[in-house]
Amino acid sequence: MRAIAETRAVRGTRRSFLVGLGRAFDLVRRDPFATAGILIYAVFLFVAIFADQLATHDPHQILYRANRRVASNLPPFGDHILGTTNLGRDIYSQLIYGARSALLVGISAAFAVVLIGTLVGLVAGFFRGWVDMVIMRVADVALGIPFLPFVIVLSSFLEPSMWNVVIGMALVVWPSTSRVIRSQVLSLRERTFVEAARVTGCSQARILFVHIAPNVLPLSFVYGSIAIGWAILTEASVSFLGFGPGNTVSWGSMLQNAYVSQALSRGWYHWFVPPGICIILVVVAGFFVSRGFEEVLFPKLRD
């Protein structure tokens, strides 16, 4: 008996795995955009993890030519794929390491925002009453704080670090997620299955986390995939303005270096165009993925 039950369970998981795989392929076919988004994420994740292997040079190292002079301002497509900076650093390697800090900031900030946003939204929507009242007023305040200026002020008081962006986002950006999750919970809690759980004597916590929470998670993912892009953009802005950590290479700091080194007026496009394109790719990937989620979630948007 037990063996049968087990094989059945195994077969069940295998089948649900296959179904899941089938759904994934279905998504690829139906939504090439979402697929492209996931692929872009995968590529950048790969680059970030294997940055040490993929980079040709130490991004901080000042390189020298055979004649012992600094290898500054080398053009692209020579010994250095994307050329070198005015201080003789390898641009390609900086770009590769930039992916690492971008994804680190992006994913941690998205995680923080979505975690806080979802929890707060769940609590506000589920308990309603004064809890909801207080939370929503706090959300109003957070929405009244200008985001980028806040991160700048924050950065000037904290040690320069890329975590400032994560902290700033966690403090200010959660309400947009919370509001959506909250309204979702407000409608979910009136549904029959929640009513059924209540009647059968489930505890409040169980209803909230076992019955309601799984239903809002897809929505959290939508906001998460957008938040990744937002965090990377913010990190780039903060670094560009010179409030980033001096010791890490990021796409934003590359752009700042290019800007202050007059790369614009000297037409060194190979220096400041690639980081921008990398940022665009990651942020667009977020749009694509969230769009894919949305289409799965709200088929109404589809024809």
Partner: peptide
């Protein structure tokens, strides 16, 4: 449209500045 929305504003600014102000010289820098 999605690309313009995904691009950092300041980077768009840098590209526009490099092209129209410095390379072409149409506008002040």
């Amino acid at each position: 449209v999605l690309v313009t929305r995904a691009a950092p504003e300041f980077w768009l600014g840098m590209v526009v500045l490099a092209i129209f102000a410095f390379s072409l010289g149409w506008f002040p820098g």
